[in-house]
Simulated assay, not measured.
Amino acid sequence: MDSPHGAAVTAEDFGLRGPRGWAFRGVDIEAGPGSLVAIEGPSGSGRTCLLLALTGRMRPTEGHAEIGGLRLPRKMAAVRRLAALGQVPGVNELDPAFTVAEHLRERALLQHRFDGSLRALLRPRSERVAAARERIDAALAAAGLDTATLPKAERTSVRDLERLEALRLSIALALIGGPGLLAVDDTDLKLSDAERAEAWELLRSIADSGTTVLAVCSQAPEGAVTVRTDTTAAPADAQAEDTTTEEGPADAFAETGRA
């Protein structure tokens, strides 16, 4: 899998108001392609809403942002095609009953079905299977997930994964589509200090490879482009007054990876 060219992320006076008040407002960002952007703040400070707004899943109500030159909120659908979601609780979660292999096969199938060219769709099945396996292996390597070390290798159920392993799997699934922007929620939640360091090392390596990374956290790592959410805003579960675009619901994306 070739490293994609990351999407620059900019925002000016960016805000989202829901029925319970402002989820976030007054956000300014200036991050070049291949940056590691950390959205820092306590739980309930609007971090997840900001992540979803920057990936085209929620409609902002104030200011503007650009993702890879695509202006929000006007180009929400195009931004959704560019940006991939890793884990986002309540929006894009791993199914605990599925195995690692089932998640990977499903994501590769979706990628092939919706993003493949006509020529690719007409290739012999053996070639399509080999190409899908190649994408999966490259994404697993980039996410640092060695399935051979899991209790039942790729047959391991998600419910049996450690927290850091589940994080790596969600990132691998997102990377299968070769996004310009990778977005991850609750990056450092329930991780030990050592695991937190591993997680940030992983995300930094993905950014260094060319994919811009947007990560929600309670404490940003040194060297990241840090965006701090307003702790006086409404809780992060406040929904936008209008999250629907002309293309359909902007936040109705349950599958892992690029929507």
Rank of each mutant, 00 (worst) to 15 (best):
T10G: 08
A11G: 06
L16M: 15
P19V: 13
V37K: 01
E40V: 11
P42E: 11
G46I: 02
G46H: 05
C49A: 15
C49Y: 03
T55K: 01
T55F: 02
G56H: 00
M58G: 03
E62G: 05
E62F: 03
A65Y: 03
I67P: 02
G68M: 03
R71N: 06
M76L: 14
A77K: 10
L82R: 01
V88Y: 00
G90M: 05
N92V: 10
N92A: 15
D95A: 10
D95S: 09
V100Q: 05
R105D: 15
G116L: 06
L121D: 08
E127D: 11
A132V: 07
E134P: 02
R135V: 01
A153D: 14
A153L: 11
A153Q: 13
E154Y: 01
E154M: 07
S157W: 08
R159S: 15
R163P: 04
E165F: 04
L167K: 10
R168E: 07
R168K: 14
S170E: 02
L175W: 10
L181M: 05
D185I: 00
D186N: 14
L189A: 15
K190D: 15
K190N: 13
L191W: 04
R196C: 12
W200K: 04
E201G: 15
L202A: 09
L203F: 10
R204E: 13
I206C: 13
S209N: 09
V213G: 06
G223H: 05
T231A: 15
E241M: 14
E247C: 06
E247M: 07
E247K: 07
G248R: 03
A250Y: 00
D251C: 08
D251V: 00
A254G: 09
E255T: 12
R258Q: 05
